[in-house]
Amino acid sequence: MTRSIIRVRNLHKRFGESHVLKGIDLDVEAGEKVCIMGPSGSGKSTLLRCLNFLEEPSDGMVFLDDRPVGFIENAHGKRRRDTEANINRMRARMGMVFQSFNLWTHMTAAANIVEAPIHVGGLSRQAAHEKALKLLKLVGLEDKKDAYPAKLSGGQQQRIAIARALAMDPEIMLFDEPTSALDPELVGEVLAVMSELARGGMTMIVVTHDMGFASAVADRIVFMDHGQIVEEAPPSTFFQQPKNDRTIQFLAKMKSRPF
């Protein structure tokens, strides 16, 4: 039996008055590729950001390898925020790729990739740069190692961002709408890298609108609406035989786009 790398139990998140996540339960196994889909405002990004504690859950818990993420439970069963050091250690075990790439603009591509391994992972400069070169080759951008993000296309920036996330040897990769901000002709190069990553066995949780990628790569599609998981199924079942009304509506809207 494969173990769950990520377990989410009864996750709630409120922003002031707005109740964005309403009791999410999710299990992701090692090597699984999960795509989270849903309309805007369904809470997909918030869920992803709770996984690496970029957002602090209002209730419920996330477990990475059976260890609670971000919280410590004291003797009375009350929980409080874990130490910064522990939270950072947890985050270093998960890689995140953002919709707006978020490459550090004052550093070159290579510098972006080696930053965390050197300053968080304790790697030597030499070792970190060797690793960076390997990762740059992996994403097909060795010739851009000394380029600044401002000079790179969106697709190139996102591929460097993926390399940067991989540099910490994460156990799981989190993707927050990685291609939504890209011009259409640049989407393919990023999806190619992600597919390659998937083939290599990486556990991936991808929030996306891209149905093509989801059907090709996902083991499971999780559909969210209004802060809840409405339906979960493998791609073939999900796209061909959706069960829930809201899922059916969503898929109909996606398919009825004029182009």
Binding site: N52, L54, E84, A85, N88, R89, M90, R91, A92, R93, M94, G95, M96, F98, S100, F101, N102, L103, W104, T105, H106, E115, A116, H119, V120, A161, R164, A165, M168
Partner: peptide
């Protein structure tokens, strides 16, 4: 400084002082 820069740093496991020093301050 765009919030995404800090997000990326925190997601990589960088501590708050490290993030301020290496990412926010230069920008």
């Amino acid at each position: 400084v765009p919030k995404g820069q800090v997000d990326a740093a925190r997601a990589s496991g960088m501590s708050y002082p490290l993030t301020m020093r290496r990412i926010v301050f230069p920008q």
